[in-house]
Nucleic acid binder design. Structure first.
Lengths: 340, 340
DNA sequence: ACTTTTTATGAAATAGATTTCATGAAATAG
DNA sequence: CTATTTCATGAAATCTATTTCATAAAAAGT
């Protein structure tokens, strides 16, 4: 590999001058600069990033920690992040940690050791060790932004859909359509998004004076199979005419279960999800859902991160993204015949 | 940040000894080692990766270049790569380049400057500049493996589904079912995967003595809308009773087009795709397709890369992954009534 | 014409590890 | 009991770029 010294020797100048030319720091005679540039180009010189980073404490790398790139809600925000990073000549290191606290902490350690200039994290459960680790990042003043819901007392920038509002919209939509016994399939207890969405659901039901009985609440783990099973459990208890699922993937599982029970969608049971994954529009019947501008969310998170990287003024703000109700076939038909 | 010198001073040894202890290189008295370890732990020492990399020429980073993480065929292999990399204490830098040659070359440059220990690339068209760039990588003996089809004269390891065989299987499946006029929706001309799949299709048609007329070949760009339009063009020419699409996404587009034309699947037109994306199983009717073990493909590519990183013996082998025929509803019903 | 400022440059220090080489001590061999 | 090998350790070199400091030359000011 050709170094700055090789260039210096060949151009009959000192390494310092070469460095100055290559970083266009001025204070170099134009003639000298041209000479250096010519040699550098000729020898196809490319600076050694490690050496540079060692000196400047900048790596032009950012880290991204998500539970699982295979989960269809992540590719879009990831792409948003990549696009803004790449435009700024940054690369992004991505880790999938399966929401496993141990892995998350290890990854944060690893990335700080690598010397990333900033970190975007999507963490579903705020366990104590993890919170402590993130506090440490604040102390060494490493720019961090949270993608998705986050602890209110942890003062970091955060960008997330308004989960509660989205869930409220979905539930209200069903209620307005004339459904009364709206069941919910939620996520694991510790999951923050699921908790927020559950809150929105509860609020809507209360506002419309619909009671929520025990048999109307079921729990899954965000995966297809769990949605299927949760729906079966709900149908068995027979106390519902609509289901709100806290994510689309489980909704699709529920759809299979409902179909298997010989019930029609939306005539017997209406169904609505959350996320608006690509699949939602392509399933039959197509799935009504709450959309979040996923690419945008990633983009905003990255922009926030770079604002910190460039200016160091992290505000600990919460950027709430407005959800969007997408009405498709699973909630299409109005059910007024039963109420009239 | 605490350095090796701080540890050395506090433990009353030289930095050299600290380094030896921390890298468990032996030749250190046990007592000394314990002392160093204790101080290191107490001061929460973590080595500066840039400094280390500068000396050792190893970054524990690998690069991954794909067209677009949002394309549903990529998340699974990406996860496969992440998993084997992370297990070896490596991180992976991912770039989406949209198959744009300029971006691909720039990214390769950028990643080599960062000093990645290896590179996995998925490049759909083998343009000359790009090929030249990859030759350069070989010259500086940077481990590289291609994910997906690749130039035969470029001597790098490559792991890919057997595209031709998969396409043959799909086409043969339709032909055996009694369909005769099997049309194809292929990808852009330069795309290697598409070309290979087209070859398999052609071979099957020839083997079964079915002529391929002009009106039976249509072209898309792998995206949903292009599949829709291509199918419309085919139906207009009215010379088909089945369609093989070189990817599932276009097949789903075609499905929408066929439905819109008032035709039934598979009764009027049978349909088969390629890739087996998650959507394929969830669409109605569910889509028959050719599956490739996507996670596995990524995993194998990464393992190959690490074999090179560790041993430096790159073989330029072609690892062919066996495709799998997945029969679902779009090719379910046998069409023998028309032939008998 | 002489001092002061500005400009262009190089030598050397620096970043934080790893590694080579040298050395004294301890262990083993003859 | 010497001679040789092995072991444990530290000093210094190294990796490659950036940056500070010093200096000489040129330009500007009085």
């Amino acid at each position: 590999m050709v170094t700055i010294y090789d260039i210096a020797k060949e151009a009959n100048v000192s390494p310092a001058t070469v460095s100055r030319v290559l970083n266009r720091q001025g204070n170099v005679r134009d003639e000298t600069a041209q000479k250096v540039l010519k040699v550098a180009k000729k020898r196809n010189y490319s600076p050694n990033t490690m050496a540079r980073s060692l000196r400047t404490k900048k790596t032009n790398l950012i880290g991204l920690i998500i539970p699982d790139i295979e989960n269809p809600i992540y590719p879009a925000p990831v792409r948003g992040i990549q696009d803004v990073a790449n435009r700024k000549d940054y690369s992004v290191i991505i880790h999938s940690t399966d929401g496993d606290e141990r892995k998350e902490i290890d990854t944060i350690r690893r990335l700080t050791a690598v010397g990333v200039d900033g970190l975007i994290i999507n963490i579903s459960e705020a366990c104590t060790l993890l919170v402590e680790e993130i506090r440490r990042l604040r102390r060494i003043s490493l720019p961090v932004v949270a993608l998705g819901p986050w602890h209110p007392d942890l003062e970091i920038d955060c960008v997330s859909v308004n989960n509660e509002k989205g869930a409220y919209m979905a539930t209200e939509h069903l209620l307005k359509l004339g459904y009364h016994k709206v069941a919910i399939i939620k996520g694991p207890e510790g999951n923050i998004s699921s908790r927020e969405r559950f809150l929105g659901y509860k609020k809507a039901m209360e506002d419309y004076c619909e009671p929520i009985s025990e048999g109307m609440i079921s729990e899954g783990n965000f995966k297809l199979g769990s949605g299927y099973k949760a729906a079966k459990r709900l149908i068995e208890k027979n106390k519902l005419d609509a289901i709100f699922c806290v994510n689309d993937v489980m909704a699709l599982g529920a759809m299979a279960a409902i179909r298997e029970e010989g019930l029609r969608i939306p005539d017997d049971i209406a169904l609505i999800g959350f996320d608006d994954i690509e699949l939602a529009n392509l399933s039959r019947p197509s799935l009504s859902t709450v959309a979040q501008p996923k690419y945008e969310t990633g983009k905003i998170a990255a922009e926030l991160l770079f604002k910190q990287i460039e200016g160091k003024l992290s505000s600990g703000k919460y950027y709430s993204i407005e959800p969007n109700l997408v009405i498709r076939e699973t909630t299409l038909k109005v059910k007024e015949m039963t109420t009239t």
